[in-house]
Design a protein around this nucleic acid. Structure first.
Lengths: 192, 192
DNA sequence: GTCTATAGGCAGATAGAC
DNA sequence: GTCTATCTGCCTATAGAC
C-alpha cells in the first residue's frame, strides 16, 4: 500500500474514534510510522485536507459495503437487519464504532467548515439513496420511500450515539427490532 | 446571576455549538467577560469539570422542558410533535441546534473520558424515561414502551445531525411525520 | 518522497497580588 | 472572588537537507 493510502486509512479510523480535534498530526504520523514532512507532501493544505480525503474514502467504503449487503437480501427490512448486525459485531469485537459513523466529524465541524460539512452531507445522502431505491422496489411510493430512508439513517446514527454512551450494543439491537414497524410494506403480501 | 452560573450558561451553549475540543478556555472567559483566575476559582479541576457541570445543567434544563411539554399534550404522538416543532423553531431562529443536543460532546468524549460519558448516558436515560411513562399511559406494554422510547430518542438525535449537515430543518420535519408510525397506539392491534 | 529541526501560536493550568 | 502575569507543552505548519 502506498503512503498516501496508508495515511488516509489510519487517519480515518483515528478520526472516527476520537474526532477531528481529538487527533493530532503527531499521533497520526506515529501510527503510520512516517514523518511530518511526508504527510505534508501528500496533503499540502494540512489537516483539513486530510479530513476531507478521509471522508471521501469513507464514502466509497460505506456505500460499497451497504450496496453489497442490500444486494444480498430481498427486502429492505432484511437488508437493514443484516447491516445493523454487522455494525454490532464490529462494535463488540473492536470496542469502537468505526463502522458507518462519522458523527464526531459532523458535530464538531459542521459549524466550522463548509467543505467538511458538505462532504458529510454527501455521505448521508448517498446512504439514503441506497435505502430509497430498495424501498421503492419493495413497493413504497416515492414520497414514503424518501421519508422512510431518512428515518432509517437518523435512527441508526442516533443509535450509534446511544451505544457509544452506554458502551453496549443494545440500543442498536433494539432499533433493529423496531425498524420493521416503518419498513413493513404497506400492501398485502402474495404469500402467507 | 452569579459568576459560576454565568460561566456554565455560556460554556454550555459554546460546547453545544462547537464541541468540547472546539472551544478554548480563552474563548469562554472572553464571552463571560471574566478572567482565567476567576474561572479556575469556580472550577479548580479545569475544563473537564466545567464540561460535566454543563452536562448536569443541561440535564435539568432539557428534562424540565420536555416534562413541561409532555404535560401539556394528551398523547406521546402530539407531545413529540410539539417538542420537535420547538427544536425546529429554535434551529431556524438561532441557526444552531443548541436545544436538546449534546451529540458533539458524546462523540468526541465518549471514548476519552468515562465521567463525561456517564453524564451523557444519564441524560439520554432521563429523556427516554419521560417518553417511556407517557407511552405506558398511552397503552403500550412495558417492553414496547421501552423500545419505542429508545427509537424516539435515537431518531431525533440522528435527525439533528442530519439538520446540522444540511443546514436545513427538513430532516427533523420528516422525522416528525414518520414517528406516528411507531407511536400509534396498538389498541386496534392486528394479528400478525 | 522522506527526513530532521524548528518556528510561532495557542492550549490548559498555576502563582500570587489585591 | 477576581485579577494579571507566566509556565509548560502541544498544536499545526514550514524550511531545507538528502
Amino acid at each position: 500500500m502506498d503512503t498516501k493510502s496508508l495515511i488516509i486509512d489510519i487517519a480515518t479510523k483515528l478520526f472516527q474514534q476520537k474526532g477531528y480535534k481529538g487527533v493530532g498530526l503527531t499521533e497520526i504520523i506515529k501510527a503510520c510510522d512516517i514523518s511530518k514532512g511526508s504527510l505534508y507532501h501528500h496533503f499540502p493544505n494540512g489537516k483539513e485536507e486530510l479530513l476531507i480525503a478521509c471522508l471521501q474514502y469513507l464514502n466509497e467504503e460505506i456505500t460499497n459495503d451497504i450496496v453489497d449487503i442490500f444486494n444480498r437480501y430481498p427486502t429492505t427490512q432484511e437488508a437493514t437487519n443484516a447491516m445493523i448486525s454487522k455494525l454490532i459485531d464490529n462494535f463488540e469485537m473492536e470496542g469502537t464504532l468505526i463502522g458507518y459513523t462519522f458523527s464526531s466529524m459532523v458535530s464538531e465541524m459542521a459549524s466550522l467548515s463548509d467543505p467538511v460539512r458538505n462532504a458529510c452531507a454527501k455521505l448521508y445522502t448517498e446512504m439514503q439513496t441506497i435505502y430509497y431505491h430498495k424501498l421503492v422496489a419493495d413497493g413504497f411510493s416515492n414520497d414514503e420511500a424518501s421519508s422512510t430512508a431518512l428515518m432509517v439513517t437518523a435512527s441508526i446514527e442516533g443509535g450509534m450515539l446511544l451505544c457509544l454512551t452506554q458502551k453496549r450494543a443494545e440500543p442498536l439491537q433494539v432499533i433493529s427490532q423496531v425498524l420493521p414497524k416503518i419498513l413493513e410494506t404497506r400492501r398485502f403480501k402474495t404469500s402467507e
